[in-house]
């Protein structure tokens, strides 16, 4: 896991450097096989340039751009299926199966791999790189400056930040060096996970969470169907702390991917923080 995140950081840093040399002619049949590249490409591609997105892109719970994706056919992210679409560029994520990527490259299809964002600061670099590989640099520059301007307006964290915990299915949490953690801190919260040395995604035992006594617990969303792994979100201990507010669920689609849509998540969390400050 550490190695993986290390690689992801390295990839992001590399991406932040000078943009790759744009192809002579921009690609005309682009297929995306990862939820996050789906959304970056949907926001930047020229009409008709993107011909297929991954299946999750149509799921309104996971994808912030499900509506925009609706008119595009989906793919199951398998090499065979993607090859038959005859793309001249495939967009994949770091966690896309390496076998799929290798197979496509062996078949002569260029594959661009994007690392997931670890912070809000990674987003301009991701936009710039997506703009470069699609030959849409001006659109990317416009989105970057709009993103930076909107972010600057939301940046009003108080000196005395309320303490919040992100608590997902299976007792998972996100520390400060994750996109979700950065959303939380940009919205003006202090993340309790960092108090016990958790900086990335990690397990936060229910006991630890209770002992930390956060002001707010923000839980992950309830997925369709049932799973025993979700039981932790309904444990009575979460409601037994008098000073802790169980503040609803986070909307996955705005939190998962490093796209300008994370601003929605920052806005919702900032509103939550303001309401917590009023009641305290």
């Amino acid at each position: 896991m550490l190695v993986l995140t290390g690689m992801a950081v390295a990839a992001v840093v590399a991406a932040a450097g000078p943009a790759p040399v744009p192809p002579v002619l921009p690609p005309v049949r682009v297929v995306s096989i990862n939820l996050c590249t789906d959304q970056l490409a949907l926001g930047l591609a020229a009409p008709g340039q993107l011909i297929s997105v991954s299946r999750l892109a149509h799921d309104p719970d996971s994808s912030a751009m499900a509506d925009a994706a609706r008119h595009l056919p989906t793919n199951g992210s398998g090499a065979e299926e993607v090859y038959l679409l005859a793309p001249d560029l495939v967009l994949a994520g770091t966690y896309t199966s390496p076998d799929t990527v290798q197979m496509l490259r062996n078949l002569g299809i260029p594959v661009e791999i994007f690392a997931p964002a670890q912070s809000l600061q990674d987003i301009p670099a991701l936009l710039a790189r997506m703009g470069a590989v699609l030959g849409r640099e001006p659109a990317a520059l416009a989105q970057i400056s709009a993103f930076r301007a909107a972010l600057a307006q939301l940046d009003d964290a108080p000196a005395n930040r309320p303490r919040a915990a992100l608590y997902y299915v299976n007792s998972y949490t996100s520390g400060d060096r994750t996109l979700a953690g950065d959303i939380l801190s940009t919205a003006g919260f202090a993340n309790v996970a960092t108090e016990i040395g958790l900086h990335r995604g990690a397990t936060l035992a229910l006991e630890q969470l209770v002992m930390l006594q956060p002001d707010v617990i923000i839980t992950g969303r309830d997925y369709p169907g049932q799973a025993r792994a979700e039981d932790n979100l309904n444990h009575p201990a979460l409601r037994a702390l008098p000073g802790t507010r169980l503040a609803g669920t986070l909307t996955d689609r705005d939190w998962i991917c490093g796209t300008p849509k994370v601003l929605n998540a920052v806005r919702i969390m900032r509103a939550l923080r303001l309401s917590v400050e009023v009641t305290q």
Binding site: Y223, P224, R228, A229, D231
Partner: peptide, 19 residues
């Protein structure tokens, strides 16, 4: 339809008292 249900297999096969 739940993405975590498959991970529950290990709980039902091996048992746990956590939480």
């Amino acid at each position: 339809p739940n993405p975590f249900a498959a991970a529950d297999i290990i709980f039902w096969m091996m048992g746990s008292l956590a939480d």
